[in-house]
Design a protein around this nucleic acid. Structure first.
Length: 599
RNA sequence: GGUGAUGUAGCUCAGCUGGUUAGAGCGACGCACUCAUAAUGCGUAGGUCAUUGGUUCAAGUCCAAUCAUCACCA
């Protein structure tokens, strides 16, 4: 029975390129998980998209003197290309400025309002008379009221590190126009009354605590027990989703409130795009379906508290005539942070490894391998170029790539380009095949528990066992005195490699496909990842979409046909030069010019 | 200041609900092999499990304190 698995992936702010932190925190774990379930035959819906609203976008737009729309469209486009290249297999990667997302977010708002989860309150906010608008905290500077540092930001003081309330700053002024002194004005806003959800949220967390990561459970309980307060869900800005009420034309929905809805809205969009408008309900209103949210640890409360509260508040939406409750996240496998060469990522200091850059120089699967082996699943981890070099050369190339290369070329040259016909296998042959076939359960179980690093380690342990088997059987020796025995061991190792190909495919989809073809198979293990354009009534948008209709890969033991014609093999992976370590380190912290992404 | 986490072989890390001689990979050293991108295999060395105290027949594994590192919150 195929299971329904929803893979919800954090939505990146479209104000800068993707970096390895994004990959390690959410996108690669989600992709590995999704690919595994597709191989298992489960029905996977994996969605995400660019977060196009919020002050990070407008600030970047102001800095460059362009519109918010052009900033997010620019990075959205780069997100599509980058993720297509590295192979993040979204069924739909869209963005939050679609008419679909706007409409549904407004429906959420109206339903929450109707059901009494929202209330109005007057806030005191800083207002610029020169610009005739309220300024978000990030646009405000002033003297810190704690340490009296003169250029504190509206949300935090860079000098003493304290979080600040913009309204308390001494002599607050606009960041853009330092002589523009701000005044305090009152404005009315809607708030969501999170406290109403407290008992249900605690019950929700309790019911999942046994299978969640301990830090996710602990953090979420803590967050709730500190007391849930109402949070404003509207703001005085002009970039964002309009508040669907008369007289609220100059306000927008707060980005934190609407962006998480993307998991839902993108599911609806996917269903519509694929011509099956109700199909999204198979994940959202199906009690058997499981929703997994792949996020970084900074996002935990939004996914274990705020998003579930919003869902509880709108339960039943678009599903009239049924009392099935809407599905809440089944698991939120949040990753910690990945540091770079021992230091925390910093966009402003360019202490970052940008994906479009490294995809120019390294194979996608090499990057995927190292990052997956270094996933910050339990604690912060570190991306080091020395580690990259050592793992790629020592493990990916030397252990796995070389196992494939040495035996495929041996079989190709010495067995007439065909899978040998072995006759009866020896005990040693049967043993290694059995051992590797057990890997389907072993590795699969770990992936289902989202222990991806351990899963990859388990698969690589089998690679080492295969190398050990090969040395003991030594077909390059036996082919001289006992060719039939050589045929047995070569057939066996090819079958072992065929199995390992599938075990590694969620992690290394590109090279697995290449190997699939060298083994003489036709067809593709996974579907196609393409960039499509969708038109709505007024706007159109591009999206990354996965089409699995041609995929034939299955998470099951190899049935390698004897006598199958092999294709001439080439090395799967490029061995790295030691010099890259110094060269790459030199890029860190240095100014960087954005380059076009080559496909 | 509060909360949470981490501290195990030179390096990167496993060690679940406490129970025989503390494990893996890399690196080092020795041997074997030559099919392979000088790749692979086998073997050896190597740790008073941060410190101190406690609970227990028994603690790397539980409790407390201390030190160090980190993150989040105030």
């Amino acid at each position: 029975m195929p299971r329904h698995i929803h893979v919800s992936v954090a939505w990146p702010y479209a104000n800068g390129d993707l970096h390895v932190g994004h990959l390690a925190g959410a996108y690669l774990p989600a992709d590995i998980f999704a690919r595994y379930h597709r191989l298992k035959g489960d029905r996977v819906l994996m969605v995400s998209g660019s977060d196009s609203h919020g002050t990070p976008i407008t600030i970047e737009a102001d800095r460059r003197g362009v519109s918010a729309r052009s900033i997010f469209e620019h990075y959205h486009e780069r997100f599509l290309l980058t993720q297509q290249k590295i192979g993040i297999s979204y069924d739909l990667f869209t963005h939050t400025d679609t008419e679909n997302h706007h409409r549904i977010a407004q429906d959420f708002f109206l339903l929450l309002l109707e059901r009494g989860y929202l209330y109005k309150e007057t806030q005191q906010l800083l207002y610029s008379e020169r610009e005739r608008r309220f300024l978000p905290d990030r646009y405000v500077e002033g003297e810190c009221y704690i340490c009296h540092y003169p250029e504190a930001r509206g949300d935090q003081c860079d000098n003493c590190g304290n979080l600040l309330e913009a309204i308390k700053l001494i002599n607050p002024h606009s960041k853009n126009y330092p002589d523009d002194l701000l005044v305090v004005r009152e404005a009315e806003h809607y708030f969501i009354d999170l406290s109403k959800f407290t008992p249900d949220l605690l019950a929700y967390i309790d019911s999942h605590a046994h299978h969640w990561r301990p830090n996710v459970t602990a953090f979420s309980r803590n967050f709730i027990n500190e007391g849930l307060r109402g949070r404003p869900i509207t703001r005085d800005i002009d970039w964002g989703i309009p508040v669907p009420l008369e007289g609220w034309d100059d306000k927008r929905l707060y980005v934190w409130f609407e962006a998480v809805m993307g998991y839902f809205t993108a599911s609806v969009e996917w269903a519509k795009n694929t011509g099956q408008p109700d199909a999204w309900k198979d994940w959202w209103y199906n009690p058997e379906a499981r929703i997994y949210n792949f996020i970084g640890k900074d996002n935990i409360p939004f996914h274990t508290v705020i998003w579930p509260a919003e869902l509880m508040g709108v339960s039943g939406i678009y599903n009239e005539g049924s009392d099935t409750p809407i599905n809440l996240p089944y698991d939120v496998p949040a990753n910690e942070f990945m540091n770079i060469e021992g230091k925390q990522f910093s966009k402003s200091r360019n202490w970052a490894i940008w994906l479009p850059d490294i995809l120019e120089r390294y194979q996608a699967d090499a990057i995927r391998y190292y990052v997956a082996m270094t996933f910050p699943e339990r604690a912060d981890s570190d991306f080091s170029w020395e580690g990259f070099l050592s793992r790629v050369n020592g493990e990916l190339v030397a252990a796995w790539g070389n196992l494939v290369n040495r035996m495929l070329s041996f079989a190709y040259k010495r067995f007439d380009g065909r899978v040998p016909e072995p006759g009866a296998l020896t005990d040693a042959d049967v043993e290694i095949i059995n051992r590797v076939e057990l890997g389907f359960d072993e590795v699969g179980k770990l992936i289902e528990q989202v222990k991806l690093r351990e899963a990859l380690q388990a698969a690589m342990a089998l690679v080492r066992e295969a190398n050990g088997y090969l040395d003991r059987r030594a077909p390059w020796k036996t082919i001289k005195e006992d060719p039939e025995d050589a045929a047995r061991s070569v057939y066996t190792i090819l079958r072992v490699i065929d199995n390992l190909k599938i075990l590694l495919a969620p992690f290394l989809p590109h090279s697995a496909q290449e190997l699939h073809s060298y083994l003489g198979y036709d067809g593709q293990l996974f579907g196609d990842l393409t960039i499509a354009e969708y038109h709505e009534s007024e706007r159109s948008h591009k999206a990354l979409v996965y089409d699995g209709s041609k995929a034939i890969g299955r998470w099951e033991p190899s049935n390698l046909p004897q006598g199958q014609a092999l294709r001439e093999p080439k090395a799967l992976f490029i061995k790295l030069e030691p010099e890259i370590v110094e060269r790459e380190r030199a890029y860190l912290g240095a100014p960087r010019d954005e380059q076009p992404i080559r496909v």
